[in-house]
Amino acid sequence: MALMTVTSSNGPPTLAEAAAQLGVAVEDLNESYGVVPIDPDKRLYSVEVREDRAPPTTEQPYRGPYSNPPIAPFGPIEGDKK
């Protein structure tokens, strides 16, 4: 899944509204992830989109796809290289 952003001036958009904004089917969004607020002041929200359905990246402002890399704890140390 790739991260993308959507905007809404009337509070958090529904999943269907987010899908329409991105030009994808609602089934292409991760329903369990939902619509996640990232900056309410800017009315900015995040959704997860199937990577093979993520729309092109030519639009401005850039809305994604953004990377969703693995993350790991910074400890304990594994196999340090001296």
Binding site: Y33, V36, P37, P40, S67, I71
Partner: peptide, 20 residues
């Protein structure tokens, strides 16, 4: 031992809602 950044994003968003 690890997850994905999107889950951290969900956690932060929840913390934001809780705090706000």
């Amino acid at each position: 031992m690890g997850g994905f950044l999107s889950v951290a994003l969900m956690g932060f968003a929840q913390l934001l809602v809780n705090w706000g």
